[in-house]
């Protein structure tokens, strides 16, 4: 099977030849090319070369055509702060609440950073065609305001100005859909919809249902391709039914959550991906890598509908390549269907 066939089979809630593995790697591409993180993301060609090098090295089942979240903050007037040892961070929030009333979504093609992402996705699609799924990324309308306004100002808005909150959701949903569709047109096969604030750990589910879910539904229905919702380490069980009704086809599971319980709740409706602990992965030896991979596969792989991945949607810079190779090797060996010991 090609990676695409493997993933599509899993998404159909059937068992492919083996459990698909998504190593959601961004920063490691810089190390592959011997570049600083800032230098690496300054050119779409670097990202194309980095992603293809990682695909060859690990033999996993996706290309992760994501640069960094702060590019979306840049679209709204924000900035990016680079560091040598981790993901670029969004700088000071660019918006104030009083700007929301007259806010309009920026045009994707006017934002140089987003254009670089689209160029990379075109190059990657030319390189792999339809053999490997290329995953693009959008921030959800409900979670983007953490970068637009700052987290506390955003919570204040949600409680104090529901009228402006609704308006922001509308503007953000329009941008989110346009950004997702540009990526699909450029070469992405699917869009990962990052919505950490949808997790009940972050926001009261009643507020998510009032503001976040309608925006998700609007944006996901307007994106003309498959979408996967990721709560970026946040627990999802409390909103699984909402996610299932939002139009997404996959859900990313956080490391604090019982993977088997999520799989059971999602079974036949949403494909589950997760939930290797990327932070703990920094210090795994080979035995730990094998044990963690086996544990996740045992918990959720039976019957398909599962993709092995990390909990957060991005593997930390501090995880060594050797560990990633051990994870990939363990997934290939232990993830073959039918699963060993009659588990499949």
């Amino acid at each position: 099977m090609t990676s695409m066939e493997r993933v599509l089979t899993a998404l159909s809630h059937r068992e492919p030849d083996r459990v698909p593995l998504f190593l959601l790697l961004t920063l490691h591409g810089a190390r592959e090319l011997g570049l600083s993180i800032e230098e690496y993301f300054s050119s779409s060609q670097n990202v194309v070369r980095g992603q293809l090098a990682m695909l060859r090295r690990y033999g996993h089942d996706c290309i992760y055509a994501f640069f960094h979240a702060s590019l979306e903050a840049e679209a709204w007037g924000g900035s990016t702060i680079f560091r040598d040892d981790g993901p670029p961070n969004a700088g000071a929030p660019p918006l104030k609440a009083d700007a929301i009333e007259s806010l309009a979504p920026p045009r994707v093609t006017d934002v140089p950073g987003l254009v670089r992402v689209l160029e990379a996705q075109r190059g990657l699609r030319q390189a792999v065609g339809d053999s490997v799924p290329i995953i693009g990324v959008v921030m959800s309308p409900f979670s983007l305001p953490v970068m637009q306004l700052g987290f506390d100002a955003y919570l204040d808005l949600m409680f104090d100005r529901p009228d402006l909150m609704q308006r922001l959701m509308e503007v953000n949903a329009a941008f989110c859909a346009a950004w997702g569709n540009e990526q699909l047109a450029a070469g992405a096969h699917a869009i990962c919809y990052f919505d950490p604030l949808a997790s009940p750990k972050m926001i009261d589910p009643s507020l998510y249902r009032r503001f976040g879910w309608p925006a998700a539904r609007r944006a996901l229905n307007a994106i003309k391709g498959p979408t996967a919702t990721h709560l970026a380490s946040g627990p999802c069980l409390g909103v699984v039914e909402d996610l299932a009704g939002s139009g997404t086809v996959m859900v990313g599971v956080g490391g604090e959550e019982d993977l088997a319980a999520v799989k059971k709740r999602c079974c036949g409706r949403l494909t589950v991906f997760g939930n290797l602990n990327g932070i703990a992965m920094r210090s795994w030896d080979e035995a730990a890598a094998i044990a963690e991979v086996k544990g996740a596969i045992d918990a959720a792989a039976q019957g398909g509908g599962f993709i092995l991945s990390d909990q957060h949607g991005e593997i930390p810079w501090q995880v060594p390549e050797r560990t990633l190779e051990q994870v990939a090797q363990a997934a290939r060996e232990y993830g073959r269907y039918p699963l060993q010991g009659g588990r499949g």
């Binding site: 919570l155 204040d156 949600m158 409680f159 750990k201 926001i203 009261d204 589910p205 507020l207 604090e256």
Partner: peptide, 17 residues
Amino acid sequence: KWDRGELSLSHVYMSGR
């Protein structure tokens, strides 16, 4: 309660505020 997953960070923030 937040630590145990029974409340959300938004509850913690607004309570503090």
